[in-house]
Design a protein around this nucleic acid. Structure first.
Length: 280
DNA sequence: CTGTGGTCCTGTATGC
DNA sequence: TGCATACAGGACCACA
């Protein structure tokens, strides 16, 4: 489940291997990941050929590979998307969906089992694709105005986890890091956002930034082969998760068994003692 | 505008 | 053994 630290790990991996490389032939093996390219898979392949990559960029969970002509290849990994860089002759896995030949004999391969992710060409999108314009700045963005994020969060009446997962408020947080941040800050997932004091919201955002910084240093979180870096290696941050996936195991702060509950049609892991629901 | 719930996808795990 | 069902969930969209 690629969230900000995993996408940033991929971005860094791509930066060292695709920057300055020219795209040769492109093969689309499955049409779904290029569904946002309305002119179709063949046009997608033809329009990419011959362009040269600049340094990959990211906002939240969106990743884009600018070309030196001002356009960009926009990517979202969805649930299970991966970028792999392999020698052109190397065997490709069965979930390989799009292959971009590069001018150094390598191939950039977009691999995606569940195909929630995808690629598209963003005209003029080198600096910030229009498709990403509605996404809020993430907590690693030097231009983030944190106090305006705090204010936006506190204008919302829904549960705080729903607001954390709203990528237009601040981006990059998914189900795993939402649960981890809430655990660290001692906040219940369904606490109405507009009933959290400003200092608690600041603490929550600080916790989110901390946990994602630590995850990034560990190369990202992974439970299986669904998230890997561009060399096919998994991160190991899952060994240090405090809440997510720890149902029945003792809270590392107070020893109370972690509880799993359904919220927004997904699992939420909380400590029933450290994260009390709001009263009323 | 805000809030909510359905939908897309496939592989793995579990139940009968 | 085999079939059906649940589950994983990010982004988007329809609708109240």
């Amino acid at each position: 489940m690629p969230e900000l630290p995993e996408v940033e790990t991929v971005r860094r991996g791509l930066a060292s291997v695709v920057t300055g490389r020219r795209v040769d032939a492109v093969r689309v093996l499955h049409p779904r990941p290029v569904r946002r390219h309305l002119a179709g898979p063949d046009d997608f392949a033809a329009t990419l050929a011959g362009r040269r990559f600049a340094e990959p960029r990211r906002r939240g969970k969106y990743l884009w590979l600018p070309f030196d002509d001002g356009d960009a290849l926009l990517a979202h990994l969805g649930m299970s998307g991966q970028f792999r860089v392999d020698a052109a002759g190397a065997e490709a896995g069965r979930h390989t969906r799009v292959v971009l030949g590069l001018d150094d004999g390598n191939e950039l391969r977009f691999v995606d089992q569940r195909m929630f992710g995808g690629l598209s060409l963003s005209p003029g999108g080198a600096d910030l694709p229009s498709e990403v314009a509605h996404i809020g700045r993430d907590l690693f963005d030097p231009d983030l105005d944190q106090e305006s994020v705090v204010a936006r969060i506190r204008r919302r009446g829904s549960g705080i986890k729903r607001v954390l997962l709203d990528q237009t408020v601040t981006s990059g947080i998914g189900n795993i890091y939402a649960d981890e941040s809430l655990w660290r800050a001692g906040v219940h997932y369904d606490h109405p956002a507009d009933r959290l004091a400003p200092r608690r919201v600041r603490a929550l955002l600080g916790a989110a930034r901390d946990v994602m910084t630590e995850a990034l240093a560990a190369g990202g979180t992974s439970f299986d082969a669904l998230y890997v870096n561009v060399n096919g290696e998994s991160g190991y941050f899952d060994r240090t998760l405090d809440a997510y996936g720890r149902e029945g195991q003792p809270c590392r702060r107070c020893g109370t068994p972690i509880r799993r509950e359904r919220f927004m049609n997904r699992s939420s892991f909380t400590c029933p003692r450290c994260q009390r629901p709001a009263r009323g």
